[in-house]
């Protein structure tokens, strides 16, 4: 008897549970939808939103990217290709830099990996085209004339190589060792 009772209680619970869920959905039926009507209404996105990618410049207006290949290595869809080269003054830079936006999934890992803060994702997401080749952005398309999210950072001021300033002139460096001197 007790068994039957508990079975019946379980059944009742189940039925009530079902009824509850039906009630919840029914209630939603009469709420006002929260959908925003894009494109009639466009909301503002946060700076950190991950949309179209740009290559920024350092505070001197030089390309920040040093063609370190970290972004292309980390990219899960392998959509970044680069060829590094050396400028006359020893600066390492990408001879060309190509992102295939048809493959990019806007995960932002490239931005996270970039040691020079060169590659940054922007809130621009309205990005559709008819030809798939039009999605291949070259350095000319990616490079912008500002510093993006971080105005200050200048990688070469922190590095040890002499591109901006001689040895010992970078942040937190001692003057170079004089190997021909015997003074302590």
């Amino acid at each position: 008897m007790a068994q039957i009772k508990s079975v019946l209680r379980d059944l009742l619970d189940d039925v009530l549970g079902l009824a509850d869920s039906y009630a919840v959905t029914l209630k939603h039926l009469f709420r006002k939808p929260i959908t925003e009507q894009y494109p009639e209404y466009k909301r503002l996105f946060a700076e950190r939103t991950r949309g179209r990618i740009i290559l920024t410049r350092d505070p001197h207006g030089e390309e920040r990217c040093v063609a370190c290949y970290l972004c292309s290595a980390v990219c899960p869809t392998d959509c970044i290709s680069i060829e590094g080269a050396e400028r006359k003054d020893g600066r390492r830079y990408p001879l060309w830099f190509r992102i295939n936006f048809a493959r990019c999934i806007y995960c932002g890992l490239c931005e996270e990996a970039c040691p020079t803060l060169a590659i940054q994702l922007t809130p621009d997401f309205e990005f559709s085209k008819y030809g798939v080749l039009d999605f291949i952005y070259e350095k000319e398309d990616l490079l912008v004339d500002h510093q993006g999210k971080n105005a200050e950072y200048d990688y070469y001021r922190h590095a040890g190589v002499s591109v901006e300033g001689d040895k010992g002139e970078h942040i937190n460096e001692k003057p170079p060792v004089d190997v021909k001197s015997n003074l302590p």
């Binding site: 959905t25 939603h28 039926l29 709420r31 006002k32 939808p33 929260i34 959908t35």
Partner: peptide, 10 residues
């Protein structure tokens, strides 16, 4: 449509 409304969409 109904599914939309059930899920507070249009």
């Amino acid at each position: 449509k109904l599914l939309g409304r059930f899920q507070i969409r249009y």
